[in-house]
Design a protein around this nucleic acid. Structure first.
Length: 203
DNA sequence: GAGTCTCG
DNA sequence: TCCA
């Protein structure tokens, strides 16, 4: 597997997952979502809904509601523990993350064709020495990233189904977000849209 | 602290 | 959990 080093700590593996791997991962996520349905996160304080819907797998899951951002062991609606992280994702992590422990959280973000994600940092984790491993499934998106402060210069990248992006080291706390989904760019998902899987070490 | 919202 |  060949990586493009976009800048120190930011590596892009184009087509890390072939079509068959994408299909089997999609099917496993579909099963996970049956047990842990997508929920609608809301902004702290204001209660404004995210356009993205979320679920998680692994010992911990990231959630947001009026109370704030946090990792918790159970689904905010069903109260059930999150399902296990699929082996294929654990293998991806051990192949690419260069970190001695398994991830303990995997956030599942579902973007319909109109969903976006504003610029943010992933900073709710305890240990920033572990990278974020991000896999894309379904429609392509315009991914935007910048530096460690808001309002600096940014670059954009198209992420396609099967791509894996890793940010660690000096890129671990970069601001990043999704400008838009590129409709009709993949036949993988029904309904269409994009699923992003981010493997993390929350604790 | 305090926001991954939206808008420009 | 929002209220400084």
């Amino acid at each position: 597997m060949t990586a493009v080093e976009i800048r120190p700590g930011l590596r892009l593996y184009k087509a890390a997952l072939d079509r068959a791997a994408q299909e089997s991962l999609r099917d496993e996520i579909r099963e996970i979502l049956r047990a842990a349905p997508l929920f609608q996160p809301t902004m702290p304080r204001t209660g404004k809904a995210f356009s993205v819907r979320m679920s998680n797998c692994g010992p911990l899951g990231w959630v947001s509601d009026r109370a704030g951002y946090r990792y918790q062991p159970d689904h905010p609606v069903t109260g059930q523990p999150w399902p296990a992280i699929p082996d294929a994702l654990l293998r991806l992590w051990s192949d690419l993350a260069d970190y001695p422990e398994d991830p303990d959280a995997c956030l599942i973000n579902y973007y319909d064709v109109n969903a976006k994600m504003g610029a943010h940092q992933d900073v709710d984790e305890q240990d920033f020495s572990a990278p974020i491993v991000s896999a894309s499934l379904g429609d392509s998106c315009r991914f935007r990233f910048g530096g460690d402060t808001r309002g600096g210069s940014t670059q954009a990248l198209t992420l396609d189904s099967g791509d894996v992006l890793i940010f660690g080291g000096p890129a671990r706390k970069m601001f990043h977000g999704v400008d838009r989904i590129l409709p009709g760019t993949s036949t993988l998902l029904e309904p269409p849209g994009r699923i992003n899987l981010t493997l993390r070490r929350a604790r």
